[in-house]
Structures are given as C-alpha cells and as structure tokens.
Amino acid sequence: MMKNENLIQYIYGIADNALILGQRLSELCGHGPSLETDIAITNMALDLLGQTRSYYQYVAQLSGEGKTEDDIAFLRTERQYKNVLLVEQPNRHFGYVITRQFLFDMFHLLLLQNLQNSKDEMLAAIAKKGIKEVSYHQRFSLDWMKRLGDGTPESHNKVQEAVNDLWKFTDELFHMTEDDRIAFEAGVGVDVASFKTLYLQKVSDILTEATLTVPEIKWFQKGGKQGIHSEHMGYLLADLQYMQRAYPDMKW
C-alpha cells in the first residue's frame, strides 16, 4: 500500500536528478567552448530546472504543510537528496560534461517514456512534457559524444577518460529503492531495472560508433539514491542553499 510519504520519496528520486544536474550545468553558463555551445547547455539546464519545479510543486501540494517548491529545493539536508551519484559529478572538463549528460540522458528518456504511463496523472503529465525536452538533450549529447570520440586524438582520449571515470556510476541508475518498489507496485512508478539491458545496449552502440571503448568493470558505486553522496555534493549544496540558509524565512 503506497502512502503519501512513499510517493514523495519516489518523486525525489526522479526530481533531485533534474535539480542537481541543472545546477551543475548552470555552473557552466558563460564558460563554454563557444557561444553556441554555451547557449545550448544553458537551454538544457533550463529544461531540467523547469522539470524540477513541476515535480517539487507537486510534492509541495502532496505534503500539504504550506510547503513551497523552494523549501523542497533548498531546505533539505544532504542525506535527504535522493539523486544518483552520476549527476553530482563535477564539470572537470567538457568531456565529462558531455559524457555525464549522455549517460544520464539515455537513462532519463527511457525513464520518462515509462513514467508517462503512470497511474498518477500529474507524474504522467510531467513525464510527457519532459520527453520532448529530454529527446533533444539526448540528441545533443549523443552527437557530441561522436564528435569528441571520433574527433582528434586528444578529444578521443579526453572523452574516453570521462567514460572510464563515470562508468562506475551507471549501475546505480537501475537500482530499485524500497520506495521505487512500492511506487511500481502501485502502478505509479517505473521498474527501472527492466530497461537496464536496453540501456546498456544503446549506450554501447553509441560508444562504439564514437570509436570509444565500453569499460569493463565489476565494481560500481552507489549510494545517491539512499542519500549517501560523494564529497562533491556538499559543496554543490553549499552554493545552492547559501541564500536560504543565511537568510531564513524570507521572500525573494
């Protein structure tokens, strides 16, 4: 039996990814390799933050304690954010930005395509709208994977380095938390484990096309979905929450 709290936790598992990745991408605004790329990446950040707001407004409504989207975005402690480790990884260089995006977009689109059939009408509607945005993100990141992978020897090495480093965060995408399971059984949530094989197949095909090697590792990192994050997360949250923490209970 799904309780409100299960649903809220389930939504965090989806929405926090959008917030944290949006936050990471927005760090890049003004620092991209070309104006055109800068604008494109900002568009993705705006899409993700837009999705975040839809999810959080829904959570605010569900929790019904006069909460707002901002309370949810800014006033949780680190352990209460349920995003995967992948999206909080820093923008080490453009190869990391694109690889992180690619690995996430491929998952994100599959997730939303399933979520649009949710029995929860609000989640289904948010997913439907998101599919269009994320399809474009995937197109963008996928094209760039090919450009970097099959570009120059330098770009090939750099993006391969990013793939090797970030690969250990891919498995977590398909873990089912207790709340995920409850939401799935209630017909509200998605069984992410069900499209893991499809994901790996698609990702491997693209990596191969981009002349990149699919890493073979046996040990993966996990924890984000339980709120156990990497050390990067604290600094990200310090930035994100700074104003709300320094000036509590004010309107902006």
Binding site: E36, T37, I39, A40, N43, D143, R147
Partner: peptide, 10 residues
C-alpha cells in the same frame, strides 16, 4: 547538424 541544433538553441 550542429548548425541546425545551434540555430534551434540560439
């Protein structure tokens, strides 16, 4: 392809 995408974004 990139020109088309950039045009969309810009």
């Amino acid at each position: 392809e990139m020109a088309l995408e950039n045009a969309r974004d810009v």
